[in-house]
Design a protein around this nucleic acid. Structure first.
Length: 811
DNA sequence: GGCGTCTGGATTTTT
DNA sequence: TCCAGACGCC
């Protein structure tokens, strides 16, 4: 059932629709907009570039324009394609448009490039032919981890020295090829030296293995869609006929393949798709295009984004017009002046100066910390002050850093000082082992060719199908040129396979086939998932384990089941709603639909919105994650050369400019208060290193920053009060012992050293757990090595922990 | 086939 | 400092 997803409206789009005029009036749609914003909303005809500075109300312009198209220009909602950067942004935009023009907006396509391409490919991918071996529409989508596994297999296939050719580096190269729309043949043809030949060979094999697994990676989604349009003009015309209005947000972060896709739909010249143009195919006028972006916020060059797409827009699309939005509705003038000043150091940009009539506001506060712990204490102390004054809640505050690793210190210190926080990003839910395992099972049920998933769970939980058995089956698969899954089903033919392994394999095959029949019967995704976890023995294995982490794993799996249930009950809600298919009422959401949403959603559910629960909690995230968000109070931390800008960018002008844009993004997230800080000494993997201040600090106007402290205390452990600066909660001797990085990370060590001292606890005691945070002891059972405590960790729930292993400290 | 130990590599940023 | 993969022993 998941093999075909209909495109609602595709066939009926040209049918006459009774004009529905119960939407907002034109005045309402333009209310509260400034002149350039209005111009963008009502613009007709030629391709339009809206250069939208940070905080200049571009989301408003986008949503109002869509509403305008629908209600003033009578565009059919189904003829609108809007591309956003994240699924969350897509869901929000759709919701806002729906608020304006009502339910009929639901039929619009508002999604990321990747989601849109998946929808097209699910329908059309069988058209593409790869020498007779094509893809089926139930293809899997491989993320970074799957890709790495697959590339490792490729390295083995080709017998590549893993030290010279790392899977990660190969994948990066392959990704670049795909972003440039170059297939393995192109790469092979153009290889100039041995190294490139090897890379091209890896690309070829990698692509072959993907095809055998009926799987596409993220880059394939875009590249295949472009190739589809280029090679099959009639398919392209179908979509050109459908999408009369195309809107692209965050245009500065598009790569070449995405640019080409837009071009296919919106460019005038229809013949630039290559040699296969069929004059018989009816010509369709290009769609009306609007792109919105800000070259100063281009921060994804590392993954192939091409800033030239936005800089060259007017050349790429002849007779294009552009509109500049410079008035900022978010920040104080102080913050904007700082941002303008920093970004002004980039060369070759189009001048743009943000301004605000919100007044100057407070000065920026700066602090030079002794080390990263001191920096975190400073941040925590300032947040305390801000919230004590009553002007802000913790939920108004965000702490930004350059790399995920920096979050750790903040977490340690915040836990100790009782500062409530949440980390966005980092180890994501969907990257956890147990979640990946569960999803691998589900993917296998939908797409048995998916070898990466199959191999992942074949012996998970342990069921006695080891390397040797896999090798035997693999040999059979290669001998008879069948998929690995087919070979498993015919395992009795595999030479050299031990009887015991054979029995195990047959049991596994029976299990999978039984589960598959559930899927074929249209069973709900959550039911399939629960059954899978139970019948596979996965739950039992975790329940019986005495690794304390496995308790959390069980909870995570329960959470996944809950997500699936929510999806089955109401596919429209939830993080990445792009539910036009489901809205059409033609299909109940199946397992395939669930997997698709999960594959393309990032960590959208973590980003704070109006959830009241988030209002009492400080948000920690990387600068990249912060793009598109805003907070009343922002802490920009780790401003040190080598940290931010990142050490790998220091020697390269282009990369340095990207770092600077990242700084610009960070500064412009702040509405009212901005704090900047750096640490004189910072430990990078064990050894402390001494970093000079970030060059971006020198680019701030001196008079805008109120430096609370400009240098570290003389001696590391001397009392900084003496230096005239403020000081934040110097750790007590006990605190330092208990909360040193070593102690916090002693988890693994504790397990291998059973001699670890068992804390003596009583009900009512307050304790600190490495991962659950603060808790209260509820009950105790057993004694000595077998002592088990039930501890209430508040929002984390009540845990039963074996004290011998549990990383808890009595407070 | 499973499990423990050792070594080497990793840290940008993510759809 | 931590983690993953390789290797070797039970």
């Amino acid at each position: 059932m998941s093999t075909s997803i209909p495109l609602p409206g595709l066939e009926t789009i040209t049918a006459a629709e009774p004009p529905q005029r119960r939407g907002p009036s034109a005045e309402e749609l333009l209310a509260g907009l400034n002149d350039p914003q209005r111009a963008a909303v009502v613009h007709e005809g030629a391709p339009l570039l809206v250069v939208a500075g940070a905080g200049s109300g571009k989301t408003r312009v986008l949503t109002r324009r869509i509403a305008w198209l629908i209600s003033e220009r009578r565009a059919h909602p189904g003829s609108i394609l809007a591309i956003t950067f994240t699924n969350k942004a897509a869901a929000e935009m759709k919701e806002r448009v729906e608020d304006l023009v009502g339910k009929r907006a639901r039929i619009m396509w508002v999604s990321t490039f990747h989601s849109a391409c998946v929808r097209i490919l699910r329908k059309e991918v069988t058209t593409l032919d790869f020498g007779g071996v094509g893809f089926k529409s139930n293809f899997s989508i491989y993320d970074a981890a799957d890709q790495k596994r697959l590339m490792t297999l490729v390295c083995n296939d080709l017998d590549l020295d893993p030290r010279r050719y790392q899977p990660g580096a190969l994948l990066h190269w392959v990704s670049n090829q795909k972003n440039e729309l170059r297939d393995p043949e192109d790469a092979t043809k153009d290889a100039r030296n041995h190294l490139e030949e090897t890379y091209a060979a890896a690309y070829t094999t990698y692509q072959r293995r993907l095809r055998e697994a009926n799987a596409l990676d993220f880059d394939d989604l875009i590249m295949f869609t472009v190739h589809l349009f280029q090679q099959f003009p009639e398919v392209r015309e179908t979509y050109r006929r459908r999408f009369r209005h195309v809107l692209v947000d965050e245009y500065q972060d598009t790569n070449h393949a995405q640019y080409a896709l837009i071009h296919q739909l919106c460019a005038d010249a229809i013949s630039d798709g290559g040699p296969m143009v069929d004059p018989e195919v009816e010509r369709v006028e290009p769609a009306e295009l609007m792109v919105v972006g800000d070259a100063d916020q281009s921060i994804y060059a590392f993954r192939g984004a091409n800033i030239r797409n936005i800089l060259d827009f007017e050349q790429d699309f002849p007779n294009a017009t552009s509109i500049l939005l410079e008035q900022n509705y978010r920040s104080t003038q102080t913050i904007l002046t700082a941002a303008n000043s920093v970004i002004g150091h980039n060369k070759g940009r189009k001048e743009k100066r943000l301004w605000s009539d919100a007044g100057d506001g407070d000065r920026i506060v700066g602090y030079v910390a002794d080390d990263e712990h001191d920096e975190a204490r400073f941040v925590s102390g300032e947040i305390d002050k801000l919230t004590d004054e009553g002007r802000f809640r913790p939920g108004d505050v965000a702490v930004f850093y350059r790399t995920n690793a920096q979050s750790r210190v903040f977490e340690e210190v915040f836990i100790r000082l009782g500062m409530p926080y949440k980390v966005v990003g980092g180890v994501r839910f969907y990257e956890r082992r147990e979640i990946r395992d569960a999803l691998a099972y589900l993917r296998l049920l939908v797409n048995p060719a998916d070898q990466v998933s199959l191999r992942r769970i074949l012996n998970t939980p342990k069921r006695g199908i080891g390397d040797r058995a896999v090798a035997c089956v693999n040999a059979l698969a290669e001998r008879d040129r069948i998929t690995f899954w087919e070979a498993l089903r015919r395992a009795e033919d595999a030479p050299g396979l031990a009887t015991r392994s054979l029995t195990q394999i047959q049991g596994f095959v029976a299990l999978v086939e039984e589960l598959q029949s559930m899927v074929d019967g249209g069973e709900r995704p959550d039911v399939v998932l629960e059954t899978t976890l139970a019948r596979s023995g996965y739950l039992t294995a975790l329940e019986e384990s005495d690794d304390p982490q496995d308790e959390t794993r069980l909870e995570n799996l329960a959470e996944l089941v809950a997500v699936a249930r929510e999806f089955a009950d109401d596919p429209v809600a939830g993080p990445s709603a792009d539910p036009a298919d489901v809205d059409a009422g033609t299909v109940a959401p199946g397992l395939g639909d669930f997997l698709e949403r999960v594959a393309l959603v990032a960590d959208a559910d973590q980003i704070p919105d109006d959830d009241p629960e988030d209002q009492g909690v400080v948000t920690l995230m990387t600068l990249h994650t912060a793009k598109g968000l805003e907070f009343p109070v922002v802490f920009l931390t780790g401003l040190e050369d080598g940290v931010f800008p990142h050490s790998r960018a220091l020697g390269d002008q282009t990369e340095l400019e990207e770092e600077r844009r990242l700084a610009y993004v960070g500064v412009t997230r702040a509405r009212e208060r901005l704090f900047i800080s750096r640490a004189v000494v910072r430990s990078a993997w064990g050894a402390p290193s001494h970093n000079p201040g970030s060059r971006f600090l020198d680019e701030l106007p001196v008079d805008l920053v109120d430096w609370r402290r400009t240098e570290a205390a003389q001696t590391r452990w001397s009392r900084p009060d003496l230096s005239g600066g403020q000081h934040y909660g110097e750790p007590t001797a006990a605190g330092r012992r208990n909360f040193s990085a070593a102690a916090v990370r002693a988890d693994a060590a504790a397990r291998s050293k059973p001699s670890r001292e068992i804390p003596s606890l009583d009900p009512g005691d307050r304790v600190l757990h490495d991962s659950f945070g603060l808790g209260t002891v509820v009950a105790l059972e057993g004694a000595g090595d077998k002592a088990v405590a039930s501890i209430d960790f508040g929002s984390e729930g009540v845990k039963r922990l074996l004290l011998r292993y549990a990383p808890v400290e009595k407070l």
